[in-house]
Simulated assay, not measured.
Amino acid sequence: MTQEFTHLDAAGHAHMVDVTAKGVTEREARAEAYIDMDASTLAQILGGSHHKGDVFATARIAGIQAAKKTADLIPLCHPLMLTKVEVTLEPQPAHNRVRVASLCKLAGKTGVEMEALTAVSVAALTIYDMCKALQKDMVISRIRLLEKRGGKSGDFYADTVDESSSS
């Protein structure tokens, strides 16, 4: 079975998908990203001695705001009435990194995968922005969808990989 691109019309032009006839269902998506940094940078964040303030609180708020603004950032995304956005930041000192995770939920006609991915991306970018004076070579990576539930296409679960063992 060949899957068609839904954001292209018959002439190959980009368009926003018409979801008018779709039914409202509960939908949920989870995503993650990692930001690798020097041990000293992570120590300043965790020790609360960063001169810009609480890095994690700022990143969490930025991620939530980003999820709410996804349709303004990604041209063909539908504006959604999110009912829950959660951004968590898990320091992993043994690997000198932070795992950023998101959960987005709603009852609607289209999925929330892009909102979950945007949340983790912007939260990681915010950590980078707040810490770039300390370290410019931090690396944001492994941005991915972990899970999507609801909707016509069904559920999706990423292959589970123990990220805590990779470096």
Rank of each mutant, 00 (worst) to 15 (best):
G12A: 00
I64L: 10
G151P: 13
A66R: 07
A33T: 04
A43G: 10
A116D: 06
L89W: 02
C77I: 10
G23N: 15
M81Q: 15
L76R: 05
C104S: 12
D54H: 04
M130C: 06
M81D: 15
P93V: 01
G53M: 05
D162A: 08
T20R: 13
K109I: 09
I127F: 05
I140F: 03
A11P: 03
A10L: 00
M16A: 06
V55A: 02
A66L: 05
R144A: 03
V120K: 05
S102N: 03
S102F: 04
A119E: 02
V120M: 04
K84C: 14
Q44F: 09
G47P: 10
D137Y: 11
K69F: 06
Q65M: 15
I64T: 11
E86C: 07
L106C: 09
A57Q: 12
V161M: 06
I45Q: 05
G63C: 07
Q65T: 15
I143R: 05
R60K: 08
A107H: 14
T160Q: 15
R60I: 07
A158F: 09
R97V: 00
I74L: 13
T20A: 11
T160K: 15
A31F: 04
H7C: 04
V100I: 10
G47H: 05
H15M: 06
K152H: 10
E26T: 14
L80D: 07
Q135F: 04
V98M: 08
D36L: 14
H51Y: 14
M138V: 06
R60P: 13
G48P: 12
H15N: 08
T70C: 07
T2M: 11
A21I: 13
L106Y: 11
S49Q: 15
A119I: 05
S49C: 13
G53R: 04
T70N: 10
R97Q: 01
V19Y: 11
T58C: 13
P79N: 02
T6V: 06
A116M: 05
A14L: 14
G108S: 10
T25G: 12
I45G: 01
M37H: 10
C131M: 08
A94C: 07
S153K: 12
Y157H: 15
S167M: 12
R60M: 03
Y157F: 14
D54F: 06
C131A: 01
V139Y: 10
R99F: 02
T25R: 01
V120H: 01
D129Q: 02
T110H: 03
R99A: 08
V24G: 03
D18W: 00
T41F: 02
G63I: 08
M1D: 13
G111V: 00
C77N: 09
E26M: 12
R99M: 09
P91A: 01
A14R: 09
A14M: 11
D18E: 08
T20D: 14
D36P: 09
L80A: 02
G154P: 15
I140L: 07
I45K: 01
L103D: 05
T88L: 13
Q92H: 11
